[in-house]
Amino acid sequence: MREAFGATFDVPDGYLNTPSIGAPPTTVAAAVEDTLVRWRRGLDTPADFDGAVHAARVGFAQLVGVPADRVAIGASASQVVSMVAAGLPEGARVLTAEREFTSVTFPFAARPGVSVDEVPLSELPGVLTGYDLVAVSVAQSADGALVDLDALREAAERVDVPVLLDVTQAAGWIPLDLAWADWVACAGYKWLLAPRGVAWLAVHPRAHERTVPVAANWYAGEDPWDTTYGLPLRLASDARAFDLSPAWLAFTGAAVSVPYLAGLDLTEVREHCVGLADGLLERLGLPGRGSAIVTIGSDDAAQRLAAAGVVASVRDGKVRVGFHLYNTADDVERVVSALA
């Protein structure tokens, strides 16, 4: 067991795979286990999960700095991004970063008549003119590189280009204030330490009419229990109009993990995570990058780390590790020793 930031984590030494799957606090796993028992015994009704959905929605809103009535719930990053892609007109041009995670780009690339251009991440804020949308991750999945949010906001406002930000690899370790963005998408099973099957889309009021509820359903009604049968279409007036009917078990976990993270001092969390990541880079003779995600490009790094008990992943041809709440200097030492 590891104790960190007021929580207990049953995570093994050397677990550095948060960019793929976050390891939950024991309280989160216990909440899901309790729900499994109740499910097996037939003790819950659908309405019993509304409180969990609400708690997770409010927690996510706090993490990204938006009002809760702007937040829709979903199941995956690509699913919520698809509602933005569906609202683009024929001939729209979308700008993104090179090697961007495909859950961000594929929903747009799959739209007939919509073109998607890639540019280096560092150049993206400077080339927005002529585009109908920019879609980019705050922290890149492949290597943890961070977009310059201040520069992107200034450029987007200057040339009036809508912005979609994916915070799947950022929310939970970076303090975020993204009320200015048109859309903010996120999946919860990585840094937000929730089960897979939970996602969110924050929708700015000015972008509401340009967001299409491609999976419109009963749960997206103003009163979900009054929209279970019959026409006409009657969706909620706020971002709940874009809700997907929730995955109950997943949301019982998110209802614990997301408010927990929202209640932490995220500046302290970032200092902890980045301190470990940059400390590893320094030990490897490399400059710090200010990200919780580190990539290692040596030919046999994956094999050597696995042999040392380090749980990592390989992305875009490099070993990727990530440092979260439960990681310590001992994890850094384990990586350094394996690669020495």
Results as ranks from 00 to 15, higher is better:
Val53Phe: 03
Thr45Lys: 08
Val310Thr: 04
Val214Leu: 04
Ala4Asp: 10
His54Val: 09
Asp177Tyr: 05
Gly42Ser: 12
Ala340Cys: 05
Ala329Thr: 15
Gly42Met: 14
Leu16Tyr: 13
Pro259Thr: 04
Glu118Met: 11
Glu333Asn: 06
Asp278Gln: 05
Gly59Ile: 00
Ser141Pro: 01
Leu276Asp: 05
Leu63Lys: 02
Trp191Pro: 00
Gly6Phe: 11
Arg153Tyr: 11
Leu261His: 01
Ala30Met: 10
Asp265Arg: 01
Ala31Cys: 08
Ala239Arg: 03
Ile296Val: 15
Gly285Arg: 06
Pro24His: 06
Leu164Ser: 10
Pro89Asn: 10
Phe49Gln: 04
Ala77Gly: 06
Phe242Glu: 00
Ala199Ser: 15
Thr35Cys: 10
Ser137Ala: 15
Ala31Phe: 07
Ala250Leu: 01
Arg283Gly: 14
Leu264Pro: 00
Val11Ser: 08
Gly297Tyr: 12
Phe5Tyr: 12
Phe60His: 02
Val311Asn: 04
Val319Lys: 05
Pro175Leu: 12
Leu286Met: 13
Leu192Phe: 01
Pro19Asp: 13
Pro24Tyr: 04
Arg234Tyr: 10
Thr267Trp: 01
Ala312Pro: 01
Val37Gln: 12
Pro259Phe: 02
Thr35Ala: 14
Phe5Glu: 10
Ala179Val: 12
Val319Glu: 12
Arg2Cys: 05
Arg270Gly: 00
Val159Thr: 14
Asp132Thr: 10
Ser313Leu: 04
Tyr229Ala: 14
Gly42Thr: 09
Thr96Gly: 14
Pro120Thr: 12
Leu235Ser: 09
Leu249Tyr: 04
Trp191Val: 02
Phe101Cys: 09
Ala72Cys: 03
Ala92Pro: 12
Val138Phe: 07
Ser137Asn: 11
Ala262Asp: 01
Ala236Lys: 01
Pro120Arg: 08
Asp117Ser: 14
